[in-house]
Design a protein around this nucleic acid. Sequence first.
RNA 1: GCCCCUGUGGCGGAACUGGUAGACGCGCGGGAUUCAAAAUCCCGUUCCUUUGCGGGAGUGGGAGUUCGAUUCUCCCCGGGGGCACCA
Length: 844
Amino acid sequence: MSRYNFKETETRWQAVWEDKATFAVTEDSSKPKYYVLEMFPYPSGNIHMGHVRNYTLGDVVARYKRARGFNVLHPMGWDAFGLPAENAAIANNTAPATWTRDNIATMRRQLKGMGMSYDWSRELATCEPKYYKHEQKMFLDFLAADLVYRKESWVNWDPVENTVLANEQVIDGKGWRSGVDVEKRKLNQWFLKITAFADDLLAELGNLNRWPDRVRLMQENWIGRSEGAFIRFDLVGRDDRLDVFTTRHDTIFGASFMAVAANHPLSLEMAEKNPGLKDFIAECARLGTSEAAIETAEKMGFDTGLRVRHPFIEGKELPVYAANFVLMEYGTGAIFGCPAHDQRDLDFARKYGLEVVPVVAPKDADAASFDIGTVAFTDDGLHINSDFLDGTTVADGKADIARRLQAAGTGEPTVNYRLRDWGVSRQRYWGCPIPVIHCGDCGIVPVPAADLPVALPEDISFDGPGNPLENHPTWKTVDCPQCAKPAQRETDTFDTFFESSWYFARFTDAQNEDQGFSRAAANYWLPVDQYIGGIEHAVLHLLYSRFFTRALKQCGYLDIKEPFAGLMTQGMICHETYRDESGKWLTPEQAEGRAGVTIGRSEKMSKSKMNVVDPEIIIAAYGADTARLFMLSDSPPDRDLDWTDSGVDGAWRYMNRLWRMITEPKMALPEKGAGQPARLSQSAENANRAIHKTVAAVSGDLDKFHFNKAVARIRELTNLLDDLDPSAGGAPWALRQGLEAVVRLIGPMLPHIAEELWRELGHDVMLSDTPWPDVDETLLVDDTVTVAVQVNGKLRGTLDLPKGVDAGVAEKAALELPRVIEAMDGKSPRKVVIVADRIINVVI
RNA sequence: GCCCCUGUGGCGGAACUGGUAGACGCGCGGGAUUCAAAAUCCCGUUCCUUUGCGGGAGUGGGAGUUCGAUUCUCCCCGGGGGCACCA
């Protein structure tokens, strides 16, 4: 019995594809284009199972679309800047550049061993000056277009990584990588005006109909648009006012207090001469943004002593509290409290004994007796206790108040966003230098375009604390481009999300030295038709890329604003976990055959739980095709996938079975291209129909990325072919048809063995260059159909009936079934429901 | 707290817009082949009941709509995710 030699076969076909540049593409107006892209990896050292899954999914799409006649762009590159390189530099005394390039070499070799259909001529690494010089130019263009600004601001400082984190990178008050508590510091930062596009970023989500709903929802929540109003309250005894943002301006008559953030300018000012307030502010700062602290903290406030005048009630004054539940970062950092209609305000008012006046009541409630207990009333209703608003709805009340505020010049309707501008400065070495120069006389001066790139020095030292760019003897010293006096380079580098915000465009024209990409190439290939990657990038990377594309459009780089037309997010790879008697984690190898091992539930593969399986070992033992098949079988792409040894065995078994069925067929196969015999036996005819049905079904499954279903259908056809009776007329012909179909259908998933078997079947043209099989539509429709027969909704039998048979005939046949007669127990049918070609339900 | 997703055999998962629940695979049981094993092949495999034919129950739980519900509606329970004093 022959055994499939995957090692020899896989390396041989990989070499063929590489020699023939099978997957290299150029713009070609004769074919529809299709751009499939997987999120490029950070070159951490080795590929892991998550990569294998991600890139297998993308490769199936790429190969399938190619077979369907598309001009497919399928590139790969490296997200090569980032902290781990610096950490490795410190730990191993290697230069970040060397470490990164070595890792890229390793991972490139591993990816090539997976048989991915990449156009390697477009490979890029973001840490190379020939890549980042273009984004330095983009930054300068953004600066000129007023999409960039610099401001001193409170930032999230990660004390372990010694760097600033974006709000998005702070998770539960901790650094997203280091996991330690984030501190607040004030630094000068570069910001990109993502908020300038907030409305458009939100509105266009509605058109991204090939994105998962949940990702769109997450971005929608992140942008956090809310319609409301600014209201200016006059401060009593002072010349200034307190600005407030609210979405419930209709409840203004129920206002009983004001609350400002602890770090609001007014709180800070009043704290100067109020030690109690000062202590309160310090306490709020101690609480910080740490999730656990805030969650358990009850609503607290401190009277600043200030009072404001109510804008609509003559002579009414409201106290101004500093409160721990008001955020300086949102709105104006100040609110008016209306306890009756906001739960937080109610909790606060009850605690400090403030007035609770209901100003909205349910339509059928009695205004005089309507009362608020411990639950705020937040539904719609009619206004009460509200002077001129009485009897109006919430919506009408809002409109009326807004009109009056505007007329009086004390406020106006406004839209507020949760989204904040993107801080891109990082106090890090291994990133793209921000191309500006600080001059004592001229201030901030952009580096002239002709002087780009501002290249990172590679002769650096990590011996001292802080940023090696600061410590480099000469790098930051430069003459001012404007006045020629000695000046200094900016030593901050970009957030690495900067590089990944445009790499998809670079792939369209990766070798272009003069520009990041030509407009023509970008306009031909973009948007990415199918983007594939992890759900963890649902907000950060995807939102930044959407913004960046808009900014590039505004600066004349390209003509689209949405970079990714289709998005698929893949689930995690999980594996059982193992512990020994003492509770220590064990690797799967250590756990095998060992006594006293506790098997834990399947969890995401992670080094800390030691439940990782190295793809390289799997590929060495079973080959890339087996790993790919396993990744595609069973679990739909967006769900988590359980890695099991038996599942891998199953995939391996299928490969060998297919191999045997073709290299040692049960019956002599007719020559390639042999015509259909004049007469087919029933079983050959059925097989032929099954082949065409399978091709149609698998095509549909792949169009919808239902890879697990496609695999199941191909296996089903394989089973049927294996059961073909050699003595039946036309069986050998049907078998050849079927085997060829199976090989072609499985080709995008198992490219190596499929190429090999395709050649074994006598074909000279590579499978990779062979179009997708055609379907004979006439064979998809059967002349008879199996109809279920129920009595009172319970299945009592089935009938094989001619398709489209007359209802009367069907009913008669159904009522004659012995088991139907039995179930009817002598009663006559009250009603017979007949759904043509589907079901007959006899109701008695 | 708010929002979203999800719940089907021992396991991963199928089931088109309401129409034969459990495709396909894994695992398990039995058998063939073998000196023996590996590999391979065949049969069985939701549960209860029945010697077999059958019968009954069944898609987290409870109600509802319908001739008919895994699918639609409402309530409850479990699992997962996002956001969070967002005004």
